[in-house]
Every structure is written in C-alpha cells, then in structure tokens.
Simulated assay, not measured.
Amino acid sequence: MPDHQTVTVAGKVTHIFGHRFVVQTDREPVLADITPRGLEQIELHLGDYVELSGEQKPSELKVAIFTRDGRTVTITHKEKHHDHLGNADPKVALNAARAAGFATLGEPRRKPKHFEVLGKRDAAFTELHIELDGHIRKMKPVDRHDPKWMHAIGA
C-alpha cells in the first residue's frame, strides 16, 4: 500500500454529495470526504470558504481537520481492520471442501474473508468460496480450460 501524504487545501465548496464535497482551490478542484459521522458535526453549504487538512488518497482527500469561519472540527476516519488476514487456516477450507464430497486440487487461494478452493466431484470442476470458519458460501462451475485454474487442473 503506497504512503499517502498529508495535505492542506483551502477554497470554496462548489458541490456537495452527502459526506463528500468538492472544494475549488486556487489551483484545482479537490474531492473531500468528511465521513457520515463528520457530516453530523458539520453542516455543509455551497459557497462556504473552508480550509481542509488530511490524507490525500488517489481519489479524494480524507479530511482530518475541517476549518470554517474560525471554527475547527477534528474528524476521525475508521481504520481498516486486517486482523482476519493472519488468523486463517487453509486446512479448514480444505477439510470443508472434502467434507462436501470434493477432491481438492492445487492450493487454497487466500482472499480477505475467504479461501478459493478448486474442487472436483463427479468429473466436474467447481470453484468453492469457503469462509474462514469453513462455511461454503459459494460454488461455481469451472471449465476445464479456465485460465484461473488451468495450472491446478493440469489442462
């Protein structure tokens, strides 16, 4: 994940989209996000002159400090929690696939909230999405020549 820099911009509010809005600075328009919770603290108005400071992401400025008419509000953004990434055992997914009657091919592929496992039953290939607790939440047929699974199928 690339590092994003903290920036400060100032300008006039030109568009409002819920908790996101556009500020026209002296250089360019900036899309800003104050979060739904921040919107509860701040009433946005078209034409307001504001100063914003926060983390510049590729698509928007995540506002941490909002200043208007000398009043400053601090806004907190929820941090993404990746706790679930380290606590997953691929054996749980493999055991769930086997318990459902599938022979497993290749290695389970880790996703943020599940594993993808290639299973074979009755000569048919199936992609299984297995949650971290072993619950199979999705099954979809896989063609023998599917590029995603060709290596595991050996086609």
Score class of each variant (00 low, 15 high):
G11W: 03
K148I: 13
P112L: 10
I42Y: 00
R37V: 05
R110M: 14
D26T: 15
P90A: 15
I153L: 02
K120R: 08
V50T: 00
P141M: 11
A123D: 04
A124K: 15
L31T: 12
R37T: 03
F17I: 13
A64D: 05
T6V: 12
I130E: 04
V13N: 03
D3W: 14
A97R: 03
A124I: 06
H15R: 15
T8R: 15
R121Y: 03
L52R: 01
K120P: 02
G119A: 06
L105T: 09
D48Y: 00
F17N: 14
E51H: 03
T25I: 03
F115K: 01
F66L: 00
K148L: 06
P29T: 05
A103W: 07
R27S: 15
L94S: 10
I75R: 10
T14S: 11
D122K: 07
A93V: 10
D69M: 04
L52Q: 03
I153Y: 01
A123L: 12
L61M: 02
L128A: 05
L105S: 09
K78R: 14
H77A: 08
A155T: 08
N87M: 14
G18P: 10
E43D: 06
D89P: 09
G154D: 05
T6N: 09
D146L: 10
T14M: 03
T6Y: 05
E60N: 12
I153E: 02
T6I: 13
T104V: 15
H129C: 08
K91W: 12
A99S: 14
H45C: 00
P108S: 06
E107F: 10
W149I: 04
E107R: 14
E107H: 13
T76P: 07
G11I: 03
D83I: 10
R121C: 05
I16M: 08
G54S: 06
A32L: 01
A152V: 02
G106L: 05
R109V: 15
G38A: 04
Q56E: 09
F66G: 03
T67L: 04
P141S: 14
E60S: 09
K148R: 13
H81D: 15
V142A: 05
L31N: 05
L61A: 06
R20D: 11
D33T: 01
H84N: 08
L132N: 11
K80F: 12
K120C: 10
D122Y: 02
Y49V: 00
R110N: 11
H151W: 07
I136N: 08
M1E: 10
D133P: 05
F125G: 10
F66W: 07
P147F: 04
R20I: 07
D69C: 03
A93H: 12
V50M: 00
